[in-house]
Structure formats: C-alpha cells, structure tokens
Design a protein around this nucleic acid. Structure first.
Lengths: 283, 283
DNA sequence: TATATGATAGAATATTCATTCCAAACTATC
DNA sequence: GATAGTTTGGAATGAATATTCTATCATATA
C-alpha cells in the first residue's frame, strides 16, 4: 500500500504539502507552490490548463498528485473542489462542531441524536436566513403592510402553521387580519374578499398547494398586493408577488424545517410593529 | 445568432431562469429547479452526474442549457463555476448583506436589525434546547407515542401552530391523529374522545390557556397519557403530564419565539418515525 | 571521465465526457 | 379519433482529457 496518507480536507492537504515540500524535486516544488497559490485553478482546471498556467508539463502534475499519495490528478482535484463548496470557514466550523457533537451523541443514545441533528440544522438554517435575506425586501414588505387596509393570511399543509402565526401576531397589533383557513371548503370564496388596497401574505412550500397558487394568481391579477413566503424563486407564488422571500432550505436537508420561516415571520411582524409605533401611533 | 441572452453572472442567470420558467417544458422545469437548488452540483459535476442527481437524461441537460441561449452544458457550467470562485458564496453574500444593511439602516429605523436580532435569539434558543432537553424524556415520549392507539393534539393561541404541525406530521406517519381545534366552540367535547390507551400532546405557553389546562387535567384523570410541551415545570399542564418538555425561552427575551418548540416538535416526530420504521414496519 | 540514478518532456493510449441524432411517446388540435 | 407538432429517452459519435510509457537529460558518485 503505497498510500499511507492522502487527506480529504483542504486544510490537511495544505499541511501535507508543507511538510513534504523539502523532499520534493524542483519541478514538483514549483507545482506545490502553484497549487497553494492558485487553489481555484487547481479545483476547476483541466490537467492541461493547470500545467500551462504553472508552466510545466501535464505529466508533471500527475506525478505531483502521485507523490502525495493520490491516484491521479482527478483524485487530488477533489480536495480542492471540496474547499469551494465548503462555504466560509466560520460557518463550516460551526456546522462541523455540531455534527461532531451529534456523532458523539449517537454512541450514547439514538433518539437524542435526532434532536442534536435538528438543532444543528436549525442553527444553520437561521444563519443562512440572515445571510441571504435582502434587507430591502424586509423594508418593502413592512411598508406595504403598514399601509394595508386589511391583511389576509394564506397557507396550507406544512405552511399553515406559519400563516396562522402571522395571523395571530398581526391581529395582536390591532391590524385587521383574516386567516384563510378553508374551513368548510370555502377557501377560494374567503379569498375573494381581498380588495386592491389589501395585502395577502401567502406561505407555500414544495410541493406547492394548487389552491394557494391559484388564489395568489387571481388576487395579484385583481391588484391585491402579495407578499410571498416560499422556498424558491421558481415557486408559483414567488412570481406573482410584490415581495417574495425565498427561505432556501439550506442545501439538501433530508427533512424540511419550519424554523427559518417561523423566525422570518416573527421578524416581519415585530419590524411592522416598530414601524407602526414610530410613525403614526394613531388609529 | 440565436443567442440574444445568456448571462455570465449567477445572479442574472437566476433571474433569467425565473423569468423563462413558465415557458419551459416539464422536464426542463425539473432541471431548472434542480439547478437553482443545487448550484454546487451544477458547477462541479459532469453532465452524466448532474443528470443522474436530477433524475433526467444527459441530453435533457444539454437541451436546458441550449434553451437558455448557451452553446452547451459546458458554457452554462461556467456561470455556476464563476459563483464558486467569486469568493465562497455565503461569505460574499454576507459582505453584500452587510453593506446593504448599513445603507438600509440609515433609511429606516433598523428594520433589518430586527431579523439579525431574531436569528441570533433563535440560535441561542436552539442551543439552549439542545443542552437542556433530557434524552430520557425524548425516549419515553417516543415510546409512548409508538404504542398509542390514537394521538390527540391540543394547543391554543400562540401554541396552536406547534400543535397543528405535530398533527400534520404525525398524520403523515399514518398514525391516527386528531387535532383539537375548537372549531364551532366544541373544544371540550372533541377532547372527550380520548381514551385510556390514547395519547394527548398538549402545547401551552404563558399565559396558559384555561381550556387547555382543564382538558389536560380531565384527560390525565381518565388515564390518558399526556405529553406536555410547555415553558416551565410550574405550567399547569406540566404537572399532569407523563412526560413534560420545558422549552425555557432562554433568559428574558422581550419576544417569545416558536423556533425552539417547532424544532423540538419536529425532532419528536422524526424520532418517532425512526422508531416505527425500526420496530414493526407493519401496518 | 565514466557510470548509475533519478527526473523530465513529450508522444501514445485508454478513458471519460459532452454532444448529436433519431425513434418513440406524448400533447394538442382539428 | 386521426394527425401534426413537441418533447423525451437512449444509443452513437467524436472530441477532450487523464494517464502511462519511453527516450532523453541532468546530476551525483566513483
């Protein structure tokens, strides 16, 4: 087994290259320097392209990879690619810490690791929410709500808790709030009450409810302002909306969580409360 | 020259995909969704790999690229790669967000800082939840639920979204779930259906609903197993419960959040799902 | 100076990959 | 219910790519 080492993380690779640097031939040193200085080229380029940029022969690149214990350039390149998708260091470190904690728990107890998993995912989702939400959208949504005559809340299935929470919280601000809950099968009829100086807050996640999409479309066509709370810019309600929040469920989690949407909903309502308090405290 | 458009930046591409989404065929829509949800896969994968992950044929990927005005997949992939090398995505987004925040804060009374506040609070709440929840309680709650004949869900006001979520999620596990929603004012009557081999999951926060407390008391007296989701061991429902989770809203926050209870609820349901799958996969 | 050892360049090769093409399936229209 | 027009799946193709191999070159040692 020629390969005693061959790190899978970029940080380890960096250390390995540094420690082996002394033993390398001059051409291989040249490549080592290039690799550490241009990790992006290493990650995305072909052997020919990297060789050209580094001023060496393609075969030298392969020898470099082999000398570090990798099967070939492609094998080495994986490490450089992992660096690109890992995200910013601090973010990744936090996730890693959580994951390690989760693994430690798995040894002790199975059910508890589920909680560790979801709190970890939840924290990641909240960080992602904060990083990707555009402040301008928040501001616009709040000012639309502050001017609204009536606020209608719509959400079905998994999205319903979010809609209900918004209804509950907005009603407590003494705004006129109406929850479209579809009791008795009159969802579409309830929605017809919304007029052009009203606002409809629609919440919908995959797989998007047909009813919600249809109601949003008709409301938008009538001139009702729509604020969408969804999970993708391709969502059927995002395209119709005046303001659309895409709470991206951070990359491919097996279970969808309501943590981020709930947090966004609360932030919206509290920001709205501040706005109302600071401007006209009247009526 | 067929190509009138074909953005070179990822943000423009996102917009282009969103706007063209409606005109695309179903298979192409499928790819569009995948592309926006898994930009890293698009950036680093081969056509075959991307096609496999998206569940389509390689040729469909090429067609997708062509329909957006690109020469082929490689041409399209450049855009996704540019996103990766423009600095790690979340880092760049964070910088942008920060810059925008500074401007937005100046115009408004810090609408955006509200979001920063609540994501921060949410993270703290989740960490607190993780640290204070006793694994033994999770295990007991799951095993009680796994043996239940029927599961009743109860929560009013601010707690209702949590109860509804539990109802929704448990029903999807093919368990017999019943939401006590009090429509038509028959809350107490609905609750009388719970028998001694049933479980009642009650959710209640300060100020505790009188109805919920009363229902829990009567149910517990009849021998119904009660799982409480509340915010203090002194809560009127905690004392009656077989298992009680106290999701303490970490030290004196001005606004109560549902982030932690929601996360706990999801963890419970998923742990229950695992339990059911591992034990009797029958029914 | 002669020889042995290791490194290098560049051509040759085998593999992987993007792309194209065509038949089959599907839709909408008359 | 038949037909024209799209859309789709999957094999075929040709280009691009990583890797291997060998002759040459440099270097150190006797």
């Amino acid at each position: 087994m020629a390969r005693v080492s061959s790190p899978a993380s970029f940080d380890e690779l960096k250390q390995l290259i540094s420690s082996r640097y002394g033993e390398l031939s001059s051409r291989l040193r040249q490549i080592a320097e290039f690799a550490l200085e241009h990790p992006n080229d290493m990650a995305l380029g072909t052997v020919a392209a990297v060789a050209a940029r580094a001023g060496v022969q393609p075969s030298a690149i392969i020898r470099f990879a082999n000398s570090l214990g990798y099967d070939g350039f492609s094998d080495l390149q994986r490490v450089f690619r992992s660096r690109l998708v890992a995200g910013s260091p601090s973010y990744r470190e936090r996730i890693d810490t959580m994951r390690h904690k989760a693994e430690a728990d798995r040894k002790t107890n199975g059910t508890d690791s589920v909680l560790a998993q979801f709190t970890g995912d939840g924290i990641a989702a909240l960080q992602h929410l904060r990083e990707t939400t555009r402040p301008a959208d928040m501001t616009r949504a709040v000012s639309i709500l502050a001017r609204a005559s009536e606020v209608y809340l719509l959400g079905q299935g998994r999205a319903f808790p979010v809609a209900y929470y918004l209804y509950y919280a907005i009603a407590r601000l003494d705004l006129r709030a109406h929850l479209l809950d579809g009791i008795g099968g009159l969802l579409h009829e309830e929605a017809r009450a919304a007029a052009h100086d009203d606002v409809l807050i629609a919440v919908s996640f995959k797989e998007y409810s047909r009813d919600v999409a249809a109601i949003v479309e008709r409301a938008a066509a009538r001139g009702v302002k729509v604020i969408a709370l969804t999970d993708s810019p391709l969502s059927p309600i995002a395209r119709q909306a005046s303001v659309s929040f895409e709470v991206d469920q951070s990359p491919a989690l097996p279970f969808r969580s309501l943590v981020a949407p709930m947090c966004l909903a609360q932030s919206l309502v509290v920001a709205l409360g501040h706005q109302l308090a600071s401007r006209g405290g009247s009526s």
